[in-house]
Each structure stands twice: as structure tokens, then as C-alpha cells.
Simulated assay, not measured.
Amino acid sequence: MRIGMPGGGLALFARTGHAEIVAPQDALHPAGIQAAYILGLWHVTLIVCGVVFAAVLAAVLIALMRRSGGPDRHAADGQMPHERRAQSAIVLASMVSVVLLLGLVVADVLTDRALSRLPVGNALHIQVTGEQWWWKADYPGDAGHPGFATANELHVPVGRPVIVSLKASDVIHSFWVPNLHGKKDMLPGIDSTIEFRADKPGVYRGQCAEFCGAEHALMAMLVFAQAPADYESWAARQAAPASAAADMTTVQRGLQIFEQSSCANCHSVRGTSARGTVGPDLTHLMSRQTIASGVLANTPGNLADWIRDPGATKPGTTMPAVPLSAPDLQALVSWLATLR
């Protein structure tokens, strides 16, 4: 996994198999109507502030040039001519500043109204909970399939509004996917919502935008905007229980290790005896592009390293190291690799 974009902004590159997914995080390239409104407000603010900044610099330069000239003669009222001109300029500049500030206030109010008027008929509802340091996503039952939970990835249909209910289980977090919308704080004990619509298919990177502890910077997510049919297919697969373990000694041994070790105390896998709720639901773990909330590409090698010593990759994580022998770790990873 690499982070960074040659053209500005941030991106997450997650390699799985032979494919590489490029997920931009860039407010200057909106993929939804909400982000487009915010970008428009940004352009207006940038232009106004740029013009004011240039005018102030020009005034300072003019003042310095006049200061270095010869002495002015006093007028009959005791004021120099340039002092009267300066007073008039200050009054005019003050009036223009008030008009520009009022214009920015109006633009901000109009943008806020536009953001709040997104049609939400037939909206997709998702509940996202901020944890330290990962994202839990709960999809309620929809379109004939039961609800399910996933982690660190959201899938949404293109062109359909999405209402995300936001919760924080521990400290303050902030939900931010700049290609789709602005930031929304998540406060413990206070539920809030954010609404957006993805109008362009693609993969977009999100990030916690409120400092929430040691690994705040390593709390990313991916949002997949898919064609409606592709989304429905994905949701149907996610709602299904995990596939039965293959009739292979190593894979069966991995399932046994998972259910009998501390893994099952924290994680759930539908279709097994694991019912933990502290960590992410792993029912379809290998369908995700990353692990550890965007820190590592989801490959068997990275998965083994993460299980062996998660603190080496993400210091401060609440996931403990799982002391397993090399054969047992290999068996566990072999079974986890079947969770697609």
C-alpha cells in the first residue's frame, strides 16, 4: 500500500492479487453533488480572499513608494494631500470589505441550504461507528436480504442517496470523505447523520478528521461507488454466512484455532461459533481490499504479520498479539483466506 498522488491530494493504493485500486482523497475533484457545492463555495472564498490579499499588498507598496518621495506641502486644514487621499481610500476599502464579507456569508448560507436539500427518497441507510482506530459499518436489511456488518469499507450505489448514521463508541471522531461531502463530527453519546450521493462510480478514500488518539492518522476507509446492480450483488454476498470450511486438514485446523483462541472473543464470523463484538466482523474478510483500517493491503502475508504482532504495524492498537506456532498461524491464515 502506498499513499500520495502526483496531482495533489491523497490516495490509497491497495494491491490485491494482480489488481491495484487507486482511491483518491481530493476535495477538488467532487464525485457527488454535495462535494460539488462545497467546491463551489471554496472557489468563491478563494477568489475573494485572493483579491483582498492582492489589494492589501498593492496598498502597502503604494504607501511605501509615496513615503520615499519628497515632502508634501500642508493644505490649509493642516493635512497633507496624501493624508486626505489615504483617509478616503481607507473608508472605501472598509466599505468594500463589509460588502465582500456579507457576500461570503450569503454564499455560505446558500451552500448550506443546498447541502440540506438533497432528495433522500429511497435512500440507503448505513450506520457507521467510529472505533479506536477503525470503522464499523452496519447495513440494515434491505431489498430482500438480511442486514450485515463490515469494516473500513462502504459500498454505495451510484445515483442513490445515502444516509449515514454516525456514532462514536469511545472518543470524538470525524467522518470525512472529501470527494463526496464535508466533515461531520461523531460525538460519544450523541447520534448524528450525514447525507450524500455518489454520482460517479469509483473508489474514494475517507479519513477520520478529528484527532482521536495515537493512531488517528491510520484510521482510513474506502468508499466504493458502484452501479446499482453491482451494489445489489455485493450486498447479497455480504448478507450470506461464511462459506463452510473446505474439507482440508489445514483449513479445518484453522477454523478450530479461530474458535478456540482469543480471536473468537473479539470477532464474529457468521456461520461459526464466533460471536465477538469488540473487533470487526470477519465473515467476508477477504472481500475487503485492506486490513487494519487501510494500513495494509489485504494479502495472506500481511494478514499473518498483523495477527502475529499488530502493534508493530499500528502501535497502540487494542488488538493483542496472538501467540501461535508457525504451523498454527499458517492454518489460521489459510482458513481466513476462505472468507470471501
Results as ranks from 00 to 15, higher is better:
169 S>P: 03
170 D>R: 14
170 D>P: 00
170 D>V: 06
172 I>M: 05
172 I>F: 02
173 H>A: 06
176 W>Q: 13
176 W>T: 03
178 P>F: 07
178 P>E: 15
179 N>V: 04
181 H>L: 14
184 K>H: 06
184 K>S: 07
186 M>K: 04
188 P>L: 09
191 D>V: 02
200 K>T: 15
202 G>S: 06
202 G>V: 04
203 V>D: 10
204 Y>L: 07
205 R>D: 00
207 Q>S: 13
208 C>E: 14
209 A>D: 15
209 A>S: 15
215 E>V: 10
217 A>W: 08
218 L>S: 09
219 M>D: 09
219 M>R: 11
220 A>E: 10
221 M>K: 01
221 M>G: 07
221 M>H: 05
222 L>K: 07
223 V>T: 09
223 V>E: 02
226 Q>R: 14
227 A>R: 14
228 P>A: 09
228 P>I: 15
229 A>G: 02
229 A>T: 12
230 D>I: 04
231 Y>P: 03
234 W>M: 11
234 W>G: 07
235 A>W: 01
235 A>F: 02
236 A>G: 02
237 R>G: 09
238 Q>K: 13
238 Q>N: 08
239 A>C: 08
240 A>V: 00
241 P>A: 06
241 P>I: 10
241 P>H: 03
242 A>I: 07
243 S>I: 08
245 A>Q: 07
247 D>F: 00
247 D>N: 11
247 D>R: 00
248 M>K: 15
248 M>Q: 12
248 M>P: 00
248 M>G: 13
250 T>I: 12
251 V>M: 13
254 G>W: 02
255 L>H: 05
256 Q>P: 00
257 I>L: 12
257 I>C: 06
257 I>G: 04
258 F>Q: 02
259 E>P: 01
260 Q>D: 15
261 S>D: 09
261 S>V: 08
262 S>L: 12
263 C>S: 11
265 N>H: 14
265 N>R: 15
266 C>P: 13
267 H>Q: 10
267 H>Y: 11
268 S>N: 14
268 S>W: 09
270 R>I: 04
270 R>D: 05
272 T>Y: 01
273 S>M: 06
274 A>R: 01
275 R>C: 01
276 G>A: 12
279 G>L: 10
280 P>F: 07
280 P>Q: 09
282 L>A: 11
